[in-house]
């Protein structure tokens, strides 16, 4: 059941265990309860090894919880098969990664276009949407450049353009500025901020506490548990 009134994301008692031996496992997440509403800008912070990347993988439908419930737009998705999860990732979630964001030796156009190929969108429509998306992140002039012929900041912009291309419910960014200098970091965060102001739900994972100031809500994870969840003042706190 999809309900428009339900929160976008609702995690209830989510744990994630990775087997490390025969009867041994590593527990990356330990009973996470989290609700994210439409229009929020959430920063998930924590030291390395805290479980924030695992949380992002589950939020992004790249992985499923070992225990607990994940309700996305009113749908319990932990029972989804691989193809259904792929569909969610394709249509509902836009990813921005720290490394290896773009297909190597492939033009900016083809990189941004790719999610639409999986969705079966016609060529004319694809072309229009790629240009609009690239313009919205101010990089339309690089449309024919190869992905290895643009700067780190530009790569992240292209990644954001691709994340936006299917008009997803949520943008998930994993350390999106981890590789960038302070100027480029500022630019990327400003783009994300402006997307949030236009109503896009954004979740960023970062170990840089200072980036959290852009967000409306800051969640800190330590050892697979949420240790703090703070709404920041004068920010968009979602619908």
């Amino acid at each position: 059941m999809i309900s428009t009134k339900a929160p976008l994301i609702n995690l209830q008692g989510v744990t994630k265990k990775y087997p490390t031996g025969k009867d041994d496992y590593y527990q990356a997440l330990n009973g996470i309860d989290l609700v994210v509403k439409k229009g929020e800008f959430v920063a998930i912070t924590g030291p390395s090894g805290s479980g924030k990347s695992t949380l992002m993988h589950i939020l992004g439908a790249l992985d499923t919880p070992t225990e607990g419930i994940y309700i996305f737009k009113g749908k319990e998705i932990e029972s989804f098969n691989e193809d259904q999860l792929a569909d969610i990732r394709n249509k509902e979630i836009g990813f921005v990664f720290q490394f290896f964001n773009l297909l190597p030796r492939t033009t900016v156009f083809k990189n941004v276009e790719r999610p639409m190929l999986y969705a079966g969108i016609p060529a004319d429509e694809r072309k229009k949407r790629v240009m609009n998306s690239l313009e919205s992140v101010g990089i339309a002039d690089k449309v024919n450049n190869l992905s290895n012929h643009i700067s780190g900041g530009q790569i992240q912009r292209v990644a954001i353009a691709r994340a936006l291309i299917m008009n997803p419910s949520i943008i998930l960014a994993d350390e999106p500025t981890g590789n960038l200098d302070s100027k480029a970091t500022q630019e990327i965060m400003n783009i994300l901020l402006s997307l949030n102001k236009q109503g896009k739900t954004i979740i960023i994972i970062t170990h840089e506490e200072e980036l959290a100031v852009f967000a409306s809500r800051k969640i800190k994870i330590v050892d697979g548990k949420i240790v703090s969840d703070i709404l920041l003042k004068n920010k968009n706190h979602g619908a």
């Binding site: 193809d83 792929a86 394709n90 990664f97 290896f100 999986y118 969705a119």
Partner: peptide, 16 residues
């Protein structure tokens, strides 16, 4: 392999 991971993240199904 990383490229395949990325493609899966942006919605590629097994058959794709």
């Amino acid at each position: 392999t990383k490229e395949i991971g990325l493609l899966k993240a942006i919605g590629a199904k097994r058959k794709d």
